[in-house]
Each structure stands twice: as C-alpha cells, then as structure tokens.
Nucleic acid binder design. Structure first.
Length: 309
DNA sequence: CGAATTTGACCTTA
DNA sequence: TAAGGTCAAATTCG
C-alpha cells in the first residue's frame, strides 16, 4: 500500500488513466473475440465507446508524459487539443511533500463566517492546485468532438472581459464547494476566431462525492437515471450556456510549477463509475458517456446566433 | 422559495 | 498599476 502512496500525483493519475485504457482495451478484446463478459453487460458498451475510451486514455497519458518530460513528444492528433498550462517551470516532476495541507481543507466545517480570510487562503491555495486546459472543438454536425464526460456540476461565479479577447471568460466552480469542500474550478474561454472552439481550463480536482460515487447500483433494471442532477444540458434556449458548462473533457492535470499539491484524502483517480472488482477501479463507460449530455440536432441553430450578448 | 446566474466591486498577481 | 480572478448582492430561473 505504501507503494502507491509513494507515487506522485502525476504518476497516480497517469497510472489511473492507463488503467482505464487497459480496461477498455480488455473489454474490447473480449468483445472482438466474441466472449462478451456477461456481467458488464454488452448492452450498453458499444465498441465505439470502448475505442473512444482507449483513445482518450492514450491522449491523456501522452499529454502527461509530454509535459513532464521532453516537449518533443507531439502526438495528439485528436480533434480535442490538450494543452498543459504551465505557469512556471514544469521542471520538478513532483516532489510531494505533503506538509502544508493545513486545516484549510478540514476547515470547511467552519461556518460561513469567512469572508476576506476565506478569499485569502483560497488564493494561497490556488497556487498549489493543479491546472490544465483543453480546447474543445465543436462541429455543427456531431456536436462536441472528443471525449466529453463532465459529470460534474459546475456553478458559474463570474465572468470577465479579457484583454485582447473577443469574448468574455467565464468562471465556474464545483457546485459542492461549500457543502463538500470541493475546490475544483474551471474557466471557459471562447476562441476569438474559431467559433467552434472553446478553451477550458481546469484548476484542481474534484473532492466532492460526485467524483467518487457517481453511478447508482444497477439493482433495479428499470431506473436508469436515479441520480438527481449531474450536469446535463437542460434548456435548449441557453444551449450555449449549458454547453459551456458541459463542455468538458476531463484530463489529468499536473502541478503548477512551484509546489505540488497533494490531496488530503482524495483518491487521485477520476472515476467514472467504479463498478467492478479488479485491482484497480474499472470503468463503466456507459455512465460517464451519458447520452444526456449530448448536444442534439438543435445545436447548429445555436451556432448561428451564437453571439448572444 | 431555494438554487443558479449576473454583474460591479473588490482582491490578487504579474 | 493594469489585467485577471473572486465575491456577493441582486436578479433570474426552475
């Protein structure tokens, strides 16, 4: 056990990602060989999804490697471009010295009295949060390109005009920040020229339960969506909005440069539903590839009157 | 009526 | 000090 603890956050996430891909590949293999795993129903996991998962896994793993070592590994052909956001020198791989975790994290229990102080330590922490960004491309026909599986719920807390940018930048944080002390945030910036591109920058990972226990037990075959409300496109009217909110490709992030942030008690894995037994959490792709998040045919319409402010 | 968004002020960072 | 990021009151939404 101590073995895994020794791993840096990067290593853990990388491992996690690789495991996901491996898992999906295994399933795919089983499928190809005709020996469909009875339990993990062949029902919902289409080959396409598996492939997608595998590719996504590769992309992210490569991204991480690309970042932490030589910047010469340019392999990411996919429609979705992943961009490591480097603030300073990505030099130190990850020297986790889980020292300054302080009570800030546990402090959440504290009442809501914190104003300025809250802000302060929040910003202090900000430096330590892993940060990464992605470009999400949209095609009118297919909706979103690339892996999109943001099952997290975000809440907008600000919008700002950016110098030189045509469109304002939107700021989101995890809905459960106050309730579960989850400090994940993201910001969405629409590309100046290419209307189909949004750049999403994430900071911090989710420590809230929705990142830990997404899928409801499949005990009852009837109910497929027992869950309250993860992020899902809702009002067609604000398609763009919901899009921005959902526009999300989860990728592993890395440290910010100076200090590597080590998580208090958060599993370093994003899990999209750990339903299986394996040594590692394995993924039920069906869950994160939730069709509800899809942008259907209404989409192109939105693109036209896209500029809505 | 509670939860999410909007938006100008305020705070932090470069 | 300006640009970027966050807060929080007011407003809108569901």
């Amino acid at each position: 056990m101590e073995g895994k603890d020794m791993l840096s956050w990067e290593q853990k996430t990388l491992l996690s990602e690789l495991v996901l891909g491996y898992d999906a590949a295994k399933k795919l293999q089983a499928r190809v060989l005709g020996e469909a795993p009875s339990l993990v129903a062949a029902t919902a996991e289409t080959t396409g999804i598996l492939v997608k998962q595998i590719l996504s896994s590769y992309e992210k793993s490569l991204l991480m490697l690309n970042w932490s070592s030589s910047p010469s590994v340019q392999l990411i052909p996919a429609p979705v471009t992943l961009i490591p956001v480097t603030n300073s020198v990505p030099e130190s791989p990850a020297s986790i010295n889980g020292s300054p975790i302080s009570e800030e994290f546990v402090d959440g229990g504290g009442s809501s009295e914190s104003h300025r102080q809250d802000y302060i330590f929040n910003s202090k922490k900000r430096k330590m949060l892993p940060k990464w960004s992605e470009k999400v491309k949209i095609s009118p026909e297919r909706g979103l390109e690339g892996p999109q599986d943001d099952v997290f719920s975000w809440r907008k807390y600000g919008q700002k005009d950016i110098l030189g940018a045509k469109f304002p930048r939107s700021y989101y944080r995890c809905t459960h920040r106050s309730t579960q002390n989850c400090w994940a945030t993201k910001q969405v910036q629409r590309s100046d020229n290419d209307q189909t591109v949004f750049e999403v920058t994430y900071r911090g990972t989710h420590t809230c339960s929705q990142a830990i226990t997404p899928p409801p037990p499949p005990t009852s075959p009837e109910k497929l969506d027992t869950r309250p409300k993860t992020t899902v496109a809702q009002k067609p009217k604000d398609l763009l909005e919901s899009l921005k909110t959902n526009l999300t490709v989860r990728t592993q992030g890395l440290d910010d440069g100076d200090d590597v942030f080590s998580f208090p008690n958060t599993p370093p894995f994003y899990d999209y539903g750990t339903i299986n037994n394996g040594d590692f959490g394995h993924v039920d792709v069906v869950d994160w590839f939730n069709p509800t998040v899809e942008i259907d045919t209404t989409f192109p319409t939105f693109l036209h009157e896209s500029i809505y402010y």
